[in-house]
Amino acid sequence: MRIEELREEEFVCGSFACAGCGAILAVRLALKVLGPETVVVTTPSCLLGVTTFYPQLAFKVPCVNVPFPATAAAVSGLVAGLRRKGRENVRVLGIAGDGGTVDIGLQALSGALERGDRFIFLCYDNEAYMNTGGQRSGSTPLGASTATTPVGRGAKGEDRPKKDMLRIVAAHNIPYAASASIGYPADYIRKLEKAVKAGGPAYIQVLTPCPPGWGYRSDLTVHLARLAVQAGQWALAEYEEGAWRVKEVSNPRPVREYWALQKRFAHLLQESGGEG
């Protein structure tokens, strides 16, 4: 893919997302691939708050807001309703954050994946409940300090490993599932294109760093999304027709370089004396 080939038109603009928001960049790029014949279904999250709160409505495509657990169920309803109305040309894109996907949205997503409807589900993963102030979710990585896994005497941040959502999704034997990072836009866009062409449910979980939630300067969003992959903290994986592929990291970096740029991991560096 060459950058010039991406649609020039913007389908989300003027949102109230924080400066340097990784999630809004992920959604912006996704809509460039999916195009104007798309309906977004989204759920209480940063995205809903910053794009669909009157009087600042930032989408140029239709957007249906639904309760927190319901994204994928409403997606199924839209797919069925549009088909019944002879408007299958409208693509249905469910978008939820990590909490709305791996925690409260999991049951409805599992149902929709298993029913085999044709839709794309985009999980923008900023690794905690950022919209409510940064509480841990099932997608928070081991060791991260969050509002509900604070660091203190005898507490070293999140004490459970990140939920392996991609394998849970793939276990539904859907045509396409992938993880991506906004630090690797060509890879992300290629995966979105595959998702569009999939004959059934397609799932993409994209890493979207969050400046206030992770504690870093807003210009580092893309850099961190890239470094996460280089430091082995995020895999660019793909599940297609029953086979897995993982992108090889071309220039691996030490994990401490990734940790050092974010407040949520600061205690790990102090502990290891900066040796990482």
Binding site: V64, A74, S76, G77, A80, G81, Q107, A108
Partner: peptide, 18 residues
Amino acid sequence: ESEHSALAACYGAAVAGA
């Protein structure tokens, strides 16, 4: 897979015009 999803799906289909 649940009643919550039943009504959520009805909602989605209804806003599609069905």
